[in-house]
Design a protein around this nucleic acid. Structure first.
Length: 888
RNA sequence: GGGUGAUUAGCUCAGAUGGUCAGAGCACAUGCUUCACAUGCAUGGGGUCACUGGUUCAAAUCCAGUAUCACCCACCA
């Protein structure tokens, strides 16, 4: 299936990416199996909405998760990336309701059972959609292990969790003012409400005092709710209103007499200091009403319309229309004193963007606060680490301010609440099994609670329900706790915290040890990506345009600790160009590496080092240094550095310097040298493919499969290279940097004197440093080749002819330019360089002259600074000497 | 009202414990169709590290304050 000849062609990821994925699957590369001999590494995949489509956030999170899964697998771990999907209660129900609406049907018309059939139909159709998309990204999941939050076993876990919490006293039913979405027709948790700043008004309304020619003025942001007022409240300490307390106000428009009461909740400095109390439609007012035993008057129904028992001109109006009408009529009656512009926060349903209506209703709650103590400790004592760590503070803030969690939803799509009511004796039965008979009165007139559970009530169990909990399975035993959770920080509160609470509550263990919170992806202007703005970038479009490897690499490269990613699609060019670079490096090396074999033994660093020259030793040092750094960055979740360091190594160290240094040998006639360089190339290419594989799995596997001696071996199953501290040789790297500087200096002189193309130049070197001299002699062929000159000769004295010059460490290089270029140009160039170095020199000088510095800085810093100063001084001296000579 | 983050080259952003940290990519300029790559190679220009104080021998980095921006949380009607 792999055409080796394709290396005559350009990098074209579309030719092979999906073939490679099939290749992995056909070879069971992703297969998950318990193996107690091996250490495990588990990531529970945040389950995407079953009817959803892949967005950039998924692409980023999956790239990171796959990065770790593939890396750990190559490091010898038995990995499990638990795949799954979420039934997403409200979201999915909304999708289906919208579809039905197009057909002119409502869910009420269909009835619960038929409606659910319809939802399942839609879900089944969508079911594999996201999974397919994730295959394009290269996600290394065992898809046969996929779970769905409404699967039978998952449902059992949910029901079990509910019953257990109920029995332990952490679940209760109660009448409270909850966030109600009139469009979705259900209660929501606090987290599902998004508050938005909104410009509105503060209306000041006169409420006449009964039996007196006086009135009290209240201020409100929601005039329509006045129809449901049952009191006016003032602060007990407010002198202005003392005289009204105990009296009654006549509620305008409906002419109801309501008491004027005092309550500490009222802030005298806000508005008029007098508050209308609408207990049925405001959480604070409700609390006030409870304290004062006030009646509740409902005026808004569950659809957001006014109730029909109101005066006819208000009855059945939509709430905002009613507001206008109320304001109008108040104006007509002269009761509206003033209207003030006022900005305040209004809650919106995060699913459908409808304004939330606080509603009094019967709902089920979880006492989260009491359950969260252990969860707090996990992070406190480092059992769970959050990366980046600043989120830990935010985690504590949240956990310390948890409120009761409203878990009942007035929906049909979801896990039905396992609570049964006896119609005869009103007994409440909470049971994991279906209840047919009342255990108390034996009646069979039983009905189950109509509501379903919040989606998050199933997903908070995800890290263990997917492993078989509440059964004691081998999976659970082996894989739990999982190791890493990768998620956008936006659901830290919805989900991550709740999972930790669930883990501690049901299993007495954390659900995972590390949490990596990814940045959010925004458009290039920093705006959220959304359908309505049309500024979303579809990851699959990027895959089609640049390839999955480019997408993955770029996203990881951009995933920094600091902030959200403002994504310009052009950035993917970087990943694509890099993949192209790798492809072409391979293309170059291919014929050579095909001609040599390297044994397993030789593959071990130590055994390749025998005949190494400077470049070999240097690239080896760099490779091992890279491996060491990568391990560190993987361990510390500094993933942008993983991409960055690999990029620099492959592009600059390997391609720009090592491969270029090999060319004279590869093109030369010395078979022995050619063979050694070929072996080196083979070794390095194979190492590079392994290193890059977790980031760019497709191209690396494709190239790996193209090496004929790898027949049968699959890169995804290979072992990751381990670094060897002994191979990191500082002296070698210093020597190399001398040669590198020498070459760069020659190139610079050539470029600045417009001699780019002139290859027939002789450079002279004057040095009294023996090490540098011998390095030059040793590497002369490569120096000439990389700097494109014809000769290098040593001299004892500065040349007598006019020259261009540069200082490299302890050596000086010269190019005779008399007759070649304008001398003035060289003088200018030299002066510029001298002044540059002089600036640095002066800085160092003042430092070294400072008594404080000498007295207080660490000795090694002083020493280093002094040494630097000497170097710069010497360099300047040399350059100035030369300047004098030329200027003569 | 509380909190978090940001402010570094024309643009987008890195800068781990204060001293080789002033960087990358893109853009720009010059020269290269050199035998892997023009999705490329070589060379270069470009920054008072938001501002003001402070700590320190030494600050982009630590502290305090100011300004601007972004996000999160919060029942003041």
């Amino acid at each position: 299936m792999f055409d080796n000849k394709s290396f005559d062609s350009k990098y074209n990821p579309f030719d092979f990416e999906q073939k490679i994925y099939d290749f992995w699957e056909n070879n069971d590369v992703f297969k998950v199996e318990i193996n107690k001999e091996k250490k495990k590494f588990v990531i529970p995949m945040p389950p995407p909405n079953v009817t959803g489509v892949l967005h950039m956030g998924h692409a980023l999170q999956d790239s990171i998760q796959d990065l770790y899964i593939r890396y750990k697998k190559m490091k010898g771990y038995n990995v499990f990336w638990i795949p799954g999907k979420d039934h997403a209660g409200i979201a999915t129900q909304n999708v289906v309701e919208k579809m039905l609406k197009k057909e002119g049907v409502t869910k009420e018309k269909l009835g619960r059972e038929k409606f659910l059939e319809k939802v399942w139909e839609v879900v089944d159709k969508h079911k594999n959609h996201i999974e397919k998309q994730k295959r394009y990204l290269g996600d290394s999941c065992d898809w046969s292990k996929e779970k769905f939050t409404l699967d039978t076993d998952m449902s059992k876990a949910v029901i079990h969790a509910f019953v257990e919490l109920y029995n332990r006293g952490y679940i209760f039913k109660g009448k409270y003012i909850v966030n109600w979405c009139p469009r979705c027709g259900t209660a929501l948790s606090d987290e599902e409400v998004e508050s938005k700043e909104e410009k509105s008004n503060l209306w000041y309304i006169k409420y006449p005092i009964v039996g007196e020619n006086d009135y009290i003025i209240v201020a409100t942001t929601r005039p329509e709710t006045m129809l449901g007022d049952t009191a006016v409240a003032v602060n007990p300490a407010d002198e202005r209103y003392k005289k009204y307390i105990g009296k009654k106000a006549l509620l305008p428009l409906v002419n109801r007499q309501i008491p004027i009461i005092q309550d500490g909740y009222v802030d005298p400095s806000f508005g008029t200091g007098a508050v209308k109390i609408t207990p049925a439609h405001d959480p604070n007012d409700y609390e006030v009403a409870k304290r004062h035993d006030l009646p509740l008057v409902y005026v808004i129904d569950s659809k957001g319309f006014m109730t029909n028992d109101l005066p006819s001109h208000f009855a059945n109006l939509e709430r905002y229309q009613c507001r206008e009408k109320v304001v109008m009529q108040l104006k007509e009656e002269g009761l509206l004193i003033k209207v003030e512009e006022y900005t305040h926060a209004v809650g919106y349903c995060s699913r459908c963007d409808t304004a939330i209506e606080p509603m009094l209703s019967d709902q089920w709650f979880v006492k989260l606060k009491e359950l969260s103590l252990e969860a707090r400790k996990y992070v406190e004592n480092g059992t769970i680490k959050i990366h980046p760590s600043r989120w830990e503070k935010i985690y504590f803030d949240w956990i310390d301010n948890l409120k009761d969690w409203c878990i009942s939803r007035q929906l049909w799509w979801g896990h039905r609440i396992p609570v049964y009511y006896c119609d005869e004796c009103n007994e409440i039965i909470v049971s994991e099994e279906n209840v047919e008979k009342c255990p108390k009165c034996k009646s069979s007139k039983i009905h189950q609670d109509e509501d379903v559970l919040d989606t998050w009530f199933s997903s908070w169990l995800w890290p263990f329900s997917t492993l078989g909990w509440p059964n004691k399975t081998d999976m659970l035993d082996y894989y739990y706790p999982t190791d890493l959770l990768v998620s956008g920080y936006d659901i830290l509160f919805f989900w991550v915290i709740k999972m930790i609470i669930a883990g501690s509550t049901f299993l007495n263990k954390p659900p995972f040890y590390d949490i990596y919170l990814t940045p959010l992806i925004r458009d290039k202007f920093g705006r959220k990506m959304s359908k309505s703005l049309g500024n979303g970038i579809d990851p699959l479009d990027i895959v089609k345009q640049y390839g999955a490897d480019a997408l993955r690499f770029t996203l990881i490269y951009l995933s920094t600790d600091g902030q959200d990613i403002n994504l310009d699609p052009l950035k993917f060019e970087m990943g694509r160009n890099f993949a192209n670079k790798l492809w072409n490096a391979f293309r170059f090396a291919y014929p050579y590496i095909e001609q040599v074999e390297i044994s397993e033994d030789e593959m071990k660093t130590n055994n390749l080092t025998n005949d190494f020259d400077l470049y070999d030793k240097w690239i080896f040092s760099k490779l091992n240094q890279l491996l060491k750094q990568l391990d560190h960055y993987y361990d510390n979740y500094k993933i942008q550095f993983i991409a960055q360091y690999i990029y620099n190594f492959i592009w600059h160290d390997f391609c720009d310097w090592y491969i270029e240094s090999c060319k004279p040998f590869l093109f030369g006639s010395d078979i022995k040298l050619k063979t050694r360089k070929s072996k080196m190339l083979k070794y390095l290419i194979i190492s590079i493919l392994k290193i890059i594989h977790p980031l760019m799995p497709f191209i690396s596997e494709k190239l790996y499969q193209s090496i004929s001696s790898n027949n049968g071996k699959i890169l995804a199953n290979e072992k990751y290279p381990e670094y060897d501290e002994k191979s990191i040789d500082e002296k070698i790297m210093e020597d190399f940097s001398f040669i590198e500087n020498l070459i760069t200096n020659i190139r610079t002189i050539k470029a600045e004197l417009n001699l780019h193309t002139n290859k027939d130049l002789t450079f002279f070197v004057k040095t009294d440093d023996e090490n540098e001299r011998s390095l030059i002699i040793q590497e002369i062929m490569i120096i000439k080749s990389l700097s494109q000159i014809s000769h290098i000769d040593f001299i004892e004295k500065e040349p007598s002819a006019k020259f261009s010059t540069s200082v490299v460490k302890n050596s000086s290089i010269f190019l005779i330019i008399e007759g070649l270029v304008d001398i003035e140009k060289e003088i200018e160039r030299l002066k510029k360089e001298i002044s540059k170095i002089n600036d640095i020199k002066e800085k160092l000088e003042t430092k070294v002259k400072s008594k404080d510095f000498i007295g207080k800085a660490k000795p090694e810093i002083i020493e280093r600074t002094k040494k630097e100063l000497l170097e710069y001084k010497a360099k300047i001296e040399k350059l100035e000497d030369k300047l004098r000579i030329i200027e003569k």
